[in-house]
Design a protein around this nucleic acid. Structure first.
Lengths: 225, 225
DNA sequence: AGCAAATGTGAGGATAGCTCATGTTTTGGA
DNA sequence: TCCAAAACATGAGCTATCCTCACATTTGCT
């Protein structure tokens, strides 16, 4: 109903949301133009008030052409969201590549969170899309999928840093930590500075501890718990 | 722009979203009727597809009357959200009332999370509103405010269980823990069972540890960190 | 050049939130 | 009881926006 899986194309990631895979070069350029126009409008006034007619006008094309490339308004936003996810996935891959100890992980994770927060503060489009994300079911699935992919990267690093750890618990922790990254960004944006920074730092501590295998209260935990 | 603070009424919480405070008894009953109709429609098909005309029809009133009690569609959803927040706040207050040790807190928090998750699974209206919550700026502020209030309750319990702890860190941790409760519910609902249960349990562990004052990796932390 | 396929166009359909001029009921004082 | 004023109810229709579709234009190929 919401997701049309009409994508037997070789590049399903970006082209999946499109009406047909553009064959001509100009078409591909138009798609980029549309996405840039949409970005600009979202940055200026938000995705809710962005009108499709404006996107068409700013892209120098008609409404009909616009709908030839994107089946609906949500598809444009989804495409932007997936692009930003791809970027952040690359950052995470790079950041965690050389991690072999918990000390490495701590430094790398802290740096990644700071970087991510800086991007959030600087990029109104990301802020807006991630805020409106929960409204659309397809967008929620995209966010979950991104968290899963990021969690795989984190789990890989964790396995190197904590060999012999229970894999299931590592995976669950990693997914929570990555998903909560998005959440804490939204929270920090909502509260504003300087509280946002405090919460980001508190989250770093929270995440570090969750990686640790030792129970927080060993003397209190009942064995069956 | 988004929020009209036209509420010099004595009860700003529920009546704040209304067009005028109803003076006649029948009016008050109608408000309840409207909210029940809206709940039913949201439970059946979601708040996005809930139409104001349907709410009016199911409430046995006209569109015009509907708009006499609620200034817009979002106000109905906001009112429902605030009611559910009030209920959960009561549960948290009760659940944390007798907490004096970390052992108490662990048990109480675990029980609260389980209870909350059960409500989420059982109540489609709560699920829907909390999912769509991030779409509306006013709703995001309501969620933040609820998390703040719940965090105050948690901080109070934490101060009893961990006297001598740094208050600022406790407050930040408490806010994160309470805000993440909402987030992990959304996550668990997205993944579905049985993964949802696993994530809930992982979150309990994560939350416990965040309360602990001891650094997770004392041998690694630099003093200035 | 000439034809078919791909692409472009924008008036208008469809839907849903919301308004407002008008009608009806309740209230409260004489 | 009677009446005027205030409160409340009504629903046709205004508005705004997403999206479609019948038709026009351009492109690629022989």
């Amino acid at each position: 109903m919401a997701l049309d899986q009409t994508a037997p194309s070789p590049i399903p990631e970006d082209e999946g949301a499109m009406r047909k895979s553009p064959t001509q070069k100009r078409s591909r350029e138009r798609v980029e133009h549309i996405l840039m126009s949409a970005s600009r409008l979202i940055a200026e006034r938000g995705s809710d008030t962005m009108r499709m007619s404006e996107v068409a006008e700013l892209s120098g094309i008609s409404i009909g052409s616009l709908y030839q490339y994107f089946p609906d308004k949500a598809a444009i936003i989804r495409t932007l969201a997936e692009r930003y996810n791809a970027i952040s996935r690359t950052c995470i891959t790079d950041g965690l590549a050389d991690v072999t100890t918990m000390e490495d992980l701590q430094r790398a994770f802290s740096a990644l969170i700071d970087e991510y927060y800086a991007i959030f503060l600087a990029e109104p489009v990301i802020r807006d899309i991630w805020s409106a994300m929960q409204a659309d079911k397809a967008l929620r699935e995209i966010e979950l999928e991104a968290s899963r992919q990021n969690a795989i990267l984190l789990t890989t690093a964790l396995k190197r840093a904590l060999p012999g750890e229970d894999i299931g618990k590592l995976q669950a922790s990693a997914l929570l930590v990555m998903y909560f990254c998005e959440c804490v960004m939204r929270l920090a944006i909502s509260t504003g500075e300087p509280e946002g920074r405090v919460l980001i730092e508190a989250y770093k501590r929270m995440a570090y501890r969750s990686f640790d295998d030792a129970p927080a209260f060993p003397r209190l935990l009942t064995p069956g718990g």
